[in-house]
């Protein structure tokens, strides 16, 4: 699979990654090379083969819903870049009107 510059831009947007103009060509080249290698899987017949999402053969793991001690607001926000009154602060997302 060849992945061109516009696809690099599309994938970067999906991944919320800003990519500089100078990075686009190297990304296009490297990702194409790696995807070409991955394309070999297409040659395998996997019809009717179930998918393995995890090797642990379990479906649900249940626990009693019992309250237990947890982090305080101070602890939970201590590593945040910006906080205000115990909340995480982010750039404004709504206009004034």
């Amino acid at each position: 699979m060849k992945i061109d510059k516009s696809e690099v831009e599309h994938v970067a947007r999906l991944a919320r990654l800003e990519i500089g103009e100078s990075e686009k060509d190297p990304f296009s080249e490297q990702l194409s090379q790696i995807l070409k290698y991955m394309d070999q899987l297409g040659a395998l017949n996997t019809e009717g083969v179930p998918q393995t999402a995890t090797v642990r053969e379990q479906t649900n793991v249940f626990q009693e819903d019992v309250p237990h001690p947890c982090l305080s607001t101070e602890q939970a926000t201590a590593n945040a870049p910006q906080t205000e009154e115990g909340f995480f602060l982010v750039p404004r997302i709504l206009n004034d009107r």
Binding site: M38, L41, L44, T46, V49, P50, Q51, T52, A53
Partner: peptide, 9 residues
Amino acid sequence: GKAQAVRTL
């Protein structure tokens, strides 16, 4: 999807 099937193999 393909890779997960090959993982089973």
